[in-house]
């Protein structure tokens, strides 16, 4: 079950108020399966844009994205829908749970979009809870839940459909240290159990140090790539050095 992603000379520019704004330019990347792949960069550097393109939410201006060798540009509307519905789970900084649904209802929402039977839904929900524990607060509304609970529910919502790819856009950005750490270990756990590829966006070196590969993006360009070969502590120090260097260069 291979799931291999490749970006080739990817560029994206937005048309805002008449002027073109380049968010990504000439990005070439290789994301191996079953890794926690980190994208680091300061805000406005194009991280979210990259994630949106990967998630099938937006299309690149030029360049290609290959998923298992298939060019995404050749996708029809149905393929895009299937990609978003089956293959990708999204996690956001501000959780993006629906405030009118309980945590449980939020979690099973993606399954109700597919033709999944009621028993299957219950079974998958139970499976998901084994990975991430939100069972004790499943009937609470987001408003009544802590940030950590909400983010764990959001992760459940992403993994309940057993996606091949999880895209997490600053998932710890709104959380305190303890909760952030819990979320990261959840991600590592998911990676171990399901061999899911996780692409994680952050500007926090501490978060990046948990990942297998870290890519630095500034002004829409890839500046550097680091692979984790040492302990988290040493990796963290390396990331800090490189990231200040990257910023210094630009």
């Amino acid at each position: 079950m291979q799931y291999h992603i490749m970006f080739k000379n990817l560029s994206k520019s937005y048309q805002s108020k008449g002027a073109a704004k380049t968010a990504l330019s000439d990005v070439t990347l290789n994301i191996p399966q079953g890794e926690i792949f980190c994208i680091m960069g300061s805000s406005g550097s194009g991280k979210s844009t990259l994630l949106k393109i990967l998630g099938g939410m937006e299309k690149p201006t030029s360049g290609t994205v290959y998923i298992n060798g298939a060019n995404m540009a050749d996708y029809g509307q149905q393929d895009y829908d299937r990609h978003r519905q089956m293959a990708v789970g999204y996690v956001f900084q501000d959780f993006n749970l629906l405030e009118g649904l309980t945590l449980k209802e939020n979690i099973i929402l993606p399954l109700t979009l597919q033709k999944v039977s009621e028993t299957e839904i219950q079974k998958k929900y139970a499976d998901t809870l084994r990975c991430v524990d939100v069972g004790y607060c499943e009937n609470n509304y987001p408003e009544q839940s802590s940030g950590g609970e909400q983010q764990r529910a959001a992760i459940c919502r992403a993994i309940i459909k057993s996606p091949k790819l999880i895209l997490a856009d600053e998932p710890t950005g709104s959380l305190d240290h303890v909760n952030a750490k819990a979320i990261l270990s959840t991600f590592m756990d998911i990676k171990e159990r399901m061999q899911t590829t996780i692409v994680l966006v952050t500007h926090d070196a501490a978060v990046a140090s948990y990942c297998d590969t870290v890519v630095f993006i500034e002004n829409g360009r890839v500046c550097d790539t680091l692979r984790k070969e040492e302990t988290a502590q040493l990796f963290y120090e390396r990331i800090v050095t490189v990231s200040s260097k990257v910023r210094g260069v630009i």
């Binding site: 998630g55 939410m57 629906l98 993606p110 979009l113």
Partner: peptide, 8 residues
């Protein structure tokens, strides 16, 4: 947000 959850 719904779109990212997988709505067509």
């Amino acid at each position: 947000n719904l779109f990212s959850v997988g709505y067509t």
